[in-house]
Computed example of a mutant assay.
Amino acid sequence: MKQFQFNDFPNVTGSRVSLRQITDNDIPDLIEISFYDAVRAENVHQAAEMQARINQDCLDGNSIHWGIVDNETNRMVGTCGYYRGLDKGEGELGCVLLPQHYGKGYMTAGMSLAIDFGLHTMGLKRIWAATSLQNGPAIKLLERLGFVKTADVSDDEIEYEWRKNNDL
């Protein structure tokens, strides 16, 4: 079922970063964070194939996947998007940041834009995220954004739900 369909890919502009569609020119810079079904790309060809599958998922209305771009340099620093649950009016929010950009606030800015878009443009009723118990930076990011832990999904995975109703 197509839950969300856009005539044009929705780009979102913020003061520090923007969320935009990933192009073929971006793929070489994103190989190390290119994943599909938890499998990481090992080369440009695999990353391009994965991106084509991601783009089809977006066209089918099952997900939305943005590149996070530093507005000052116009360079891609990571990715984020909604990957599951859209058919129920919900969205699992996920993200990956290029290692050289850790600790610089890019993901906080990008995820804030994605949360706002999910709530106000897509009308999502619930936003959640899952991460590993060992991923301390992701846990801190989610808590900083207003997510609260809601479940231990497995021995190593925990789920968080967005609950903050402040400035978004």
Rank of each mutant, 00 (worst) to 15 (best):
E90Y: 01
G146W: 03
L142C: 11
R84W: 12
Q100T: 12
S63A: 15
M76N: 08
D167W: 05
V17C: 11
L142I: 10
C95T: 09
R144V: 08
W66A: 08
L124Q: 09
N71T: 14
I115N: 06
K88S: 06
Q46C: 02
D26A: 03
Q56W: 10
V96A: 11
Y102M: 02
D116I: 04
Q100F: 01
A129L: 00
R20G: 08
G67D: 08
L19S: 02
Q5R: 12
F6W: 07
L93Y: 05
D29M: 09
G85A: 02
Q46E: 15
F9I: 04
T121V: 11
R16H: 13
H65Q: 11
D26K: 07
N55K: 15
R144I: 02
V44R: 03
L141I: 05
V69E: 09
E90P: 02
Y83P: 01
R126G: 02
L86D: 02
I158L: 07
G94S: 04
Q5H: 13
K104H: 14
G94H: 05
S63G: 10
T150K: 14
G136A: 04
D26I: 12
R163V: 14
K125Q: 09
M76R: 10
G67N: 05
G110Y: 05
W66V: 11
T23G: 10
D60S: 08
G136C: 03
Q134M: 08
S112D: 12
V69L: 12
I158V: 15
D167Q: 10
N166K: 11
D116F: 03
F147W: 04
R126I: 00
G89W: 08
S34C: 11
N71I: 14
A138L: 04
E161N: 10
D26S: 12
D167N: 14
